[in-house]
Amino acid sequence: MQTVGHSEHTLKTALISKNPELVKQYEQLDPGEQRLLNEAFRPCSDLFGPITLHSPSDWIISHPETPQDFEQFFSNLHRKSPSPGKQTIYIQCIGQILTFLKKKKPEDAFCVVGVTMIDLYPRESWNFVFGQASLTEGVGIFSFARYGTDFYSSHYKGKLKKLERKSSSDYSVFNDYYLPEATSVLLLRSCKTLTHEIGHIFGLRHCQWLACLMQGSNHLEEADRRPLDLCPICLRKLQSAVGFRLRDRYKALVRWIDAESTDTPRVTPKHSREELVTLPKPVEAFKEWKEWVTRCLAVLQK
Score class of each variant (00 low, 15 high):
74 F>G: 03
74 F>H: 14
75 S>E: 12
75 S>F: 12
76 N>A: 15
76 N>P: 07
76 N>F: 15
78 H>V: 12
79 R>N: 11
79 R>G: 04
80 K>R: 06
80 K>L: 15
80 K>N: 13
81 S>D: 12
81 S>F: 12
81 S>N: 14
82 P>S: 04
83 S>P: 07
83 S>V: 12
83 S>I: 11
84 P>N: 02
86 K>W: 09
86 K>Q: 12
87 Q>Y: 05
90 Y>M: 03
92 Q>L: 14
93 C>Y: 11
94 I>Y: 11
94 I>L: 15
94 I>G: 14
95 G>M: 00
96 Q>H: 10
96 Q>W: 00
96 Q>T: 07
96 Q>R: 07
98 L>Y: 05
98 L>F: 05
99 T>W: 00
100 F>D: 00
100 F>M: 00
100 F>H: 00
102 K>C: 01
104 K>H: 09
105 K>D: 02
106 P>D: 03
106 P>I: 03
107 E>C: 01
107 E>S: 09
107 E>N: 13
109 A>C: 06
110 F>L: 02
110 F>E: 06
110 F>Q: 01
110 F>N: 01
111 C>D: 07
111 C>W: 01
111 C>Y: 02
112 V>C: 01
113 V>E: 04
113 V>C: 05
113 V>I: 05
114 G>M: 06
114 G>L: 01
115 V>K: 03
116 T>F: 06
117 M>L: 11
117 M>T: 15
118 I>A: 09
119 D>P: 10
120 L>K: 08
122 P>Q: 07
122 P>N: 08
123 R>I: 09
123 R>E: 15
123 R>C: 11
124 E>F: 10
124 E>L: 08
125 S>I: 05
126 W>V: 15
127 N>K: 15
128 F>N: 13
129 V>L: 08
129 V>E: 04
129 V>N: 00
130 F>E: 15
130 F>K: 10
132 Q>M: 13
133 A>E: 10
133 A>Q: 12
134 S>M: 02
134 S>Q: 01
134 S>N: 13
135 L>W: 07
135 L>V: 10
135 L>D: 05
135 L>A: 10
136 T>V: 13
137 E>N: 06
139 V>Y: 00
140 G>N: 10
140 G>P: 00
140 G>V: 11
142 F>A: 04
143 S>W: 02
143 S>L: 01
143 S>D: 03
143 S>M: 04
144 F>L: 12
144 F>G: 09
144 F>M: 07
145 A>P: 11
146 R>Y: 04
147 Y>H: 07
147 Y>T: 03
148 G>A: 13
149 T>N: 14
150 D>M: 03
150 D>W: 05
152 Y>R: 08
152 Y>V: 04
152 Y>P: 01
152 Y>A: 14
153 S>E: 08
153 S>C: 13
154 S>P: 08
155 H>N: 11
156 Y>T: 06
157 K>Q: 13
157 K>S: 06
160 L>G: 04
160 L>T: 14
160 L>K: 08
163 L>Y: 14
164 E>C: 11
164 E>S: 11
165 R>V: 11
166 K>C: 04
166 K>H: 11
167 S>E: 10
167 S>L: 09
168 S>G: 12
168 S>P: 09
169 S>Q: 02
170 D>M: 07
170 D>H: 01
170 D>I: 04
171 Y>R: 08
172 S>C: 08
172 S>F: 06
173 V>K: 10
173 V>C: 10
174 F>T: 03
175 N>C: 09
176 D>F: 08
176 D>C: 05
177 Y>R: 11
